[in-house]
Design a binder for these strands. Structure first.
Lengths: 122, 122, 122, 122
DNA sequence: GTGGTCTAGACCACA
DNA sequence: GTGGTCTAGACCACA
């Protein structure tokens, strides 16, 4: 479920955070599901427990999980988080359009590139 | 022309690289224009010359500049680079669409966010 | 009567202690009332008996309950405890005022925030 | 400037965070002042650099500082943060009033306890 | 067993 | 030199 890419320049803990965010937002891990324990995941990935701990702390700080001392870490409610993620994506799109205009990419070129991606939806 | 934002989390050399790319691609610095010398720019920005050197090396590696031993660094032809930049932007747009779909952003929402940005173009 | 909030960051035993303190000080549980047995409450809340035991020990240590060997735990006289609780609240208020002053909150701002809370009393 | 209290039950890194927040919000450390380096402060306090690092990371996350790789950590603009702190204090006051009412503390008792604290202001 | 804190010490990118 | 990441391993409170 979690795979570390050592060629990726991002730190390991960040890869773990993003992977869990994905699993959570896409509903693969539902609310109140228990995450693997810090030690177990560390062993499974052959990674230091501190690194996993750092990832879990960050996930909790961002509201993706909550932890109960002595029991473990659990997935939080994700409704708000998914909304936030969508907003981020739309914001990124707006920014990209701005940059595109600055470099002379025409609206047609842009829309064209995009509509391919949405094509299969129909 | 070059302004360093110390609150920006990107490294200084990267900010310099991006700023020159912008000046070059937008035609503000034309082909064969000489860049300020490493020492001069370092002094002007109150920055370590190593940092400027790193930025210049990177610009040359990416084809934005060429250096002549004993003379200095100069702006390269930009036609290909601008094309490449545009492609990068369109590629980014395609990727963003893919992510948007994965998180359930509808085509309408996406197109809406974008068209606002292009509106003033008409 | 007792509800555990697993999303609460305080330990479970502490939540139980506070809940009983509340029930006792507000007179919902009168003097000499018997508390549920450790085992029963543990079962009812689906919680480790050790955790309940820890809470009960703490309640007794603070004078909220007394235990009779072989019989169970009972609510203690609460007069002194309620007085103590009130004193704690007033002490907290005094401390908060001190901090407020240190950070430049004016008396007016402070009184204002407070009087809203007391308004309905009239 | 920074003193660790080992009898304090809060973790060391948290004590450091709070102490810096205080120094910053009270204007003792002005904007863009450089913080001691992670290593120096670690040596000075006889504490592991990781612990200082954790504190600095938290300060930056909360917007109290910004860090420049290779240069150091610096105090951020504090206007918004002071406002936020004041709001927190007023919120705490409101909450305290609510609790006070629940335990039967009268408005007079409460106002009395408070006004002592504000007395010297006149 | 579970998360959280801390020490000791290494290595990296950046300036 | 400076912050940031990571490993290795210990100890604590809590369940």
């Amino acid at each position: 479920m979690i795979v570390i890419d050592y060629k990726d320049r991002r730190p390991i803990y960040e890869q773990i955070v993003e992977r869990f965010q994905e699993l959570i937002l896409k509903g693969i891990l539902g609310a109140d599901t228990q995450l693997p324990s810090v030690r177990n995941l560390a062993m499974e990935l052959s990674i230091n427990p501190n690194t996993i701990q750092k990832a879990y702390t960050e996930l909790e700080r961002q509201g993706y999980t909550y932890s109960v001392k002595g029991k473990g870490s659990f997935i939080a409610e994700t409704d708000i988080l998914l909304k936030k993620k969508k907003d981020e994506i739309l914001e990124a799109a707006t920014l990209l359009v701005k940059v595109a205009k600055e470099y002379g990419v025409s609206k047609d070129e842009f829309i064209n590139a995009i509509s391919n991606g949405f094509k299969e939806e129909a």
